[in-house]
């Protein structure tokens, strides 16, 4: 069960890198960056998994019997998700401007800076 999580996260990351490297549409590159983020988030959440653990929230302040999953990776995932959303927002605003300046999203044509 856990092994699939880890393997899928690596596959997601590699697929994201593949999309960034081969897709010529700037928008698809942004999607690839998103894929890499999701793969990392999946791995981060899996890293905190404990067998039979429950969500790390107490029912009452006096609860003594508890077995939670690791709360730290969940906190890190929260940070990582927000950062991924920020990457997407910033990249999309750049894509809008590229379309405005170049009239195309084809990365083979957006290459005024070379050499």
């Amino acid at each position: 069960m856990l092994l699939e999580n880890y393997l899928c996260s690596i596959v997601l990351i590699v697929l994201g890198l593949y999309a960034i490297i081969t897709k010529k549409n700037a928008f698809k590159i942004v999607i690839g960056m998103g894929l890499v983020d999701y793969g990392i988030n999946l791995m981060l959440v899996s890293a905190g998994f404990r067998v039979n653990g429950t969500a790390p929230i107490f029912d009452a302040p006096t609860q003594t019997q508890y077995f939670f999953v690791d709360p730290v990776p969940q906190a890190l995932t929260l940070t990582s998700i927000v950062i991924g959303a920020c990457v997407t927002a910033l990249a999309l605003s750049l894509v809008v401007k590229i379309k405005e300046h170049y009239g195309t999203l084809d990365t083979d044509k957006v290459r005024r800076l070379n050499g």
């Binding site: 107490f58 009452a60 939670f68 709360p71 730290v72 906190a75 927000v82 920020c86 927002a89 910033l90």
Partner: peptide, 26 residues
């Protein structure tokens, strides 16, 4: 009661500070 929130805002509160700065910067 929520251990995740406790981690996010107390023991790793400085990271969350940075995270909200990331959002602000973006």
């Amino acid at each position: 009661l929520n251990a995740v929130t406790a981690v996010v805002f107390d023991s790793r509160g400085y990271d969350t500070l940075g995270e909200s700065f990331v959002l602000f910067t973006a």
